[in-house]
Computed example of a mutant assay.
Amino acid sequence: MHDEIDAPDSNSIRRRDSQGVQTEAWKRTLEETDEIAEQRRNDGWEVVTVMTAHTDTVSRGMGDDETFGLVHVLPNNYVDEFTAAFDGDEFTEYLAYGTEVDGFMFVVTEFIDPETERSILLPSRYDMALADGMVSSAADAGVLYTHVKTIDGTILGTFEHEEFAPLVSKPNE
Rank of each mutant, 00 (worst) to 15 (best):
D34P: 05
V101K: 12
V168D: 02
Y97T: 06
G103N: 04
I155K: 00
E4D: 12
P171C: 08
N42W: 10
N76M: 09
F68N: 00
Q22D: 10
H72L: 12
F104E: 09
D3I: 11
V73A: 04
E160H: 03
D6I: 15
H54D: 05
F104Q: 08
K170F: 01
A96F: 05
D140N: 07
E100A: 10
P166S: 03
T92F: 05
D6S: 11
I120G: 09
S59P: 02
T49N: 14
Y78G: 01
F86N: 10
Q19L: 13
P171Y: 11
M51H: 10
P75N: 03
Y97V: 09
L70Y: 00
W26T: 04
D132W: 00
F86R: 04
E46Q: 14
F106P: 01
T150C: 06
D64H: 03
R41L: 11
D102N: 07
A96W: 11
V58Q: 02
E117C: 07
E35C: 11
A37S: 14
E115A: 07
D89K: 12
S137R: 01
I5N: 14
D132Q: 03
G69F: 01
R60C: 05
A53S: 04
D65Y: 13
D9Q: 07
L70V: 02
M105A: 04
R28L: 10
T29P: 00
Q39C: 13
E66M: 10
E110M: 14
P171N: 06
D102L: 06
G44C: 08
D89A: 14
R16N: 08
E32F: 13
Q19E: 15
Y97W: 11
D102S: 10
F91T: 12
Y145V: 07
N76V: 05
S169A: 15
L167V: 09
P8M: 14
T158N: 00
A129D: 11
T55S: 03
V108Q: 10
H2N: 08
V73W: 02
G157R: 01
D80G: 01
S124C: 12
D140F: 03
A139F: 03
D56K: 07
V79P: 10
V73M: 01
R41I: 15
T109G: 04
S136D: 04
M62K: 11
P75C: 06
T99K: 06
T49D: 14
E160R: 09
G20C: 05
T67Y: 05
Y94K: 04
S59C: 02
D43C: 06
V50M: 09
M1F: 12
D113Q: 05
H147K: 00
Q39D: 14
N172A: 02
N42M: 15
H54V: 07
M62Y: 12
M105K: 08
T33D: 09
G69L: 02
L74T: 01
D34Y: 15
N42D: 15
A141M: 01
T146F: 00
A138I: 03
A85E: 04
I112M: 08
L130Q: 13
I151N: 02
T146H: 05
T52P: 10
F91P: 07
D56Y: 05
A165K: 12
N77C: 05
E160V: 03
P123E: 10
A84D: 14
E100L: 06
D17Y: 03
T29M: 13
H2R: 08
Q19C: 13
A37D: 03
E162S: 03
G20V: 07
D140L: 08
F82A: 13
